[in-house]
Simulated assay, not measured.
Amino acid sequence: MPKRLVKLGAIFLLGDAATFLLLLWTLLILWPSSSYMRDLYDDDGRGGGRGALGARAVMRCRRCALVTSSGHVLGSGAGDEIDGAECVIRMNDAPTSGYERDVGTRTTLRLLGHRAVDKFATRNWAELLEDRRVPANVVFWGLPWYSPLVYSPLIGSFCRVFKRSSNCFRIGKDAERAKFDALYRKETGLEAGVGSQNWLSTGFIAMAMATESCDRVTVYGMVPPDHCAAAATAAAPDAPRRTAYHYYQPDGPGECEYYLEHEAGLPGGSHRFITEKRVYARWAQTHNITFAHPSW
């Protein structure tokens, strides 16, 4: 095992984010990073895709499992079923270690947003060090002001490690981000991104990419658009039980609480999770998408 991976593993085990970030900056200085990653749509924006986005796919798969980070996956026992899919898609810093029975171990594509990069390193060190867990493809995406000083250095350092067995991409160019903003506008009638009050979720980007890459998609842990409606009235007898927003953070915010708060709008902008789920419900009719745990 390369010495730098052993050192990374030791720091990840310590869980010291500040030390980890210092190491990434050191790696950046010692080893130039530009050759380790490439833009996701390096075809100058040409289309030709078959899915919602109309863009070139990262991979081609007959059957995909898209594993959400929702607490609904806990207790599902779907790990073997997920690992049995040809391609497995995961998002942000959602771990597999310790949750194998419910979420599996394999990762074909991991989509990492800018705010999850350092969290992923401290929470998911096993995916960097164990060959059976290393994702085949890693796609980084983030807000434009993260690119020059923070975002690019972080993903550059990650790509050095992932490069041993992964394809490493970034959604960095304005034209690339504009593809997703335009799709969001088309599907919701809302503006997204800088200057708006709406921010795309990593889930929206993952779902759009899945329609490009997969003949059939099973989404694990995603609730239907109306799931949280009963939770809006605390006294409702059929209000959904509290489920954690992230399966690996049981003491974190509740899923419906978080969804409803964002859907109502937050200062500085929100993820419109429920609005996005209405889009997914429509896509399911045309892109061969099914939902499991819960099924709908």
Results as ranks from 00 to 15, higher is better:
D251W: 07
M222Y: 09
W141C: 14
F162W: 09
G156E: 02
L30W: 12
A208W: 03
C61D: 11
P237R: 06
R241C: 05
V139W: 00
E187Y: 05
K173D: 11
T26K: 01
D226G: 15
C168Q: 06
R60G: 09
D226T: 14
F20L: 00
K179D: 13
P294E: 07
V138K: 01
W199R: 12
P32L: 07
A94P: 02
N124S: 12
M207C: 09
G113M: 04
Y184D: 02
R241G: 10
Y280W: 05
E187A: 13
A208G: 12
C214I: 09
T122N: 06
P240E: 02
R282Y: 11
F140W: 06
P224C: 04
L28T: 14
S34F: 15
A10G: 15
D80H: 13
A78F: 11
V223Q: 11
Y220D: 12
E81S: 15
T218C: 13
T108I: 05
S270L: 03
R177F: 06
A210T: 14
T122P: 00
I274R: 08
E187C: 08
Y41T: 00
G113C: 05
G79Y: 10
S196G: 06
G193Y: 01
Q285M: 08
M209L: 15
A236W: 05
L24S: 11
D16S: 03
G71M: 09
A10H: 11
W141L: 15
Q249N: 10
D44A: 15
S213L: 06
A126D: 00
P144L: 09
R272V: 04
G77V: 09
R46G: 06
S97V: 10
A116G: 04
P153Q: 01
C168H: 00
W141S: 12
R133Y: 02
R56V: 13
E191Y: 10
S147Q: 15
Y151E: 10
R241F: 12
R101S: 12
E257R: 01
I89W: 11
D251F: 07
S166Y: 08
A78W: 04
C61G: 15
I289M: 06
D43Y: 08
L190E: 10
T211E: 06
L28S: 13
G71H: 06
D118P: 07
